[in-house]
Design a protein around this nucleic acid. Structure first.
Lengths: 234, 234
DNA sequence: CGCAGAATTGAGACTGGTCAAAATTTGTGG
DNA sequence: CCACAAATTTTGACCAGTCTCAATTCTGCG
């Protein structure tokens, strides 16, 4: 665990859990929050651990993943500042959460947050909205995993990163891709090799540029979008 | 739309949205509910329609699906009595909902339900719980779609139907499979042919029996479970 | 009983996976 | 700041699981 005493500005982003609350609401949320910093690669919690806390990501990138007994892994989400995670089912986390980069987290005891939400309609409403949007995202990902080709998956992944960077106020086109090829592969239901080959192909066609391993420039967003929609198989 | 005036017992199942509420809460929910019946194959709403209602399924089976522009389809869920659906994002439904069999639905105007939830902590809490459980299910399905083989997918599908039937108080082993092979294929990210071949293989090995097209008997649950966990590749 | 749609079965093709090697990047210590 | 080791990524050759296309059989319904 990294040291430092971060100020828990858990309203990093306007869509964060505790943003847009009344001053009173904000005070309530503040009273039950804690915070932590983790170095890249560290684990926030593991699939199967007792689910006691819910988190809001303040800075850095987090990945959520599920494992099969033989080691096959599916990454079910990458999180960026403002995103939240950590709701368990039956008191147990359904996935592992790990820091991709150094991260700062805002932490809430789940039961206290839920109790607070019962007294604060605005917070409850916010919770519901965020869950609905998480669910919609997961359903979108099911479509990707079940029905799209490698090329379409990669194009969609890049556009999704770009869109999310933009929403956080970062530039939409040279985007940081902090996760490894293995992480990308496990997120898209592919292998490292296929991800690499697909990126190379997109580069060869001039749709993207790869100035460095963890940077991607989208050169032809319209073409990428066509691929991501499943229209052009060329 | 079928005729008939169903009594909206929207607490069909203990996990239903409006089950387990106080009498007062129940009265509140009752005051905003409507109901409808649809024949098999009819559409409740389509992806992209304005999202005005949320539904609880009272009887029958519903499927939720998303389409790609070229017609590829992913079924993101099958619903059974007690399940709810219909939360839209940005006022629009993210998927199409269709009746697999004849169904009876309980309908709520989304805005009225949300307003009610703000005044009724128990309802809000219930909403959150159900959304968390939907999300967990979606994440489980991502693992299936991204990382499992056809054999594992089919085994897991059958066990999931069995488990849900059991939870509704129906027998766990000769289970009704009301959906077509095409629906199953689109749910598992496979083709009709692969689903059919896989079922035939499981039958040949004595793990299941197929007394009729829409009935499946699980003959060796332990073996199926092993396959579904990704342990035995035999 | 006959027909239309659904499901099964078969043969061959292709996308993406596997295994292996080469190239590149990253991180570390001098 | 550089050199070197380790890890990651890229590239290549080949393979396998699933898909495609096509024919046949089965099922349910009028």
């Amino acid at each position: 665990v990294l040291d430092g005493t971060p100020t828990c500005n858990c309203d990093v982003e306007e869509r964060a859990l505790c943003a847009g609350l009344t001053p009173e609401g904000m005070r309530g949320v503040r009273s039950i929050r804690g915070n932590s910093r983790l170095a890249a690669q560290q684990t926030v919690f593991r699939e199967g651990d007792p689910a006691e806390h819910v988190y809001t990501l303040m800075s850095g990138t987090v990945k959520l993943s599920k494992l099969l007994l033989d080691g096959r892994r599916q990454i079910i989400g990458f999180l960026f500042p403002g995103d939240f995670f950590g709701f368990g089912l039956d008191g147990v986390y359904g996935y592992t959460a790990e820091a991709v980069t150094d991260v700062a987290l805002c932490r809430f005891a789940e039961n206290r947050l839920m109790r607070l939400a019962e007294d604060m309609p605005e917070l409850g409403r916010r919770l519901t909205d965020r869950l609905v949007s998480e669910l919609a995202f997961a359903q979108e990902q099911m479509l990707l995993l079940g029905r799209m080709t490698a090329r379409e998956k990669v194009a969609r992944f890049l556009l999704s990163l770009s869109r999310r960077a933009e929403r956080r106020g970062e530039p939409a086109t040279p985007i940081a891709v902090p996760m490894s090829r293995l992480d990308i592969a496990d997120y898209l239901g592919l292998t490292i090799e296929t991800v690499s080959r697909t990126l190379t192909a997109l580069k060869r066609e001039g749709l993207v540029a790869l100035p460095s391993g963890h940077m991607v420039a989208l050169r032809d967003v319209a073409a990428l979008r066509r691929i991501a929609e499943g229209q052009s198989n060329s």
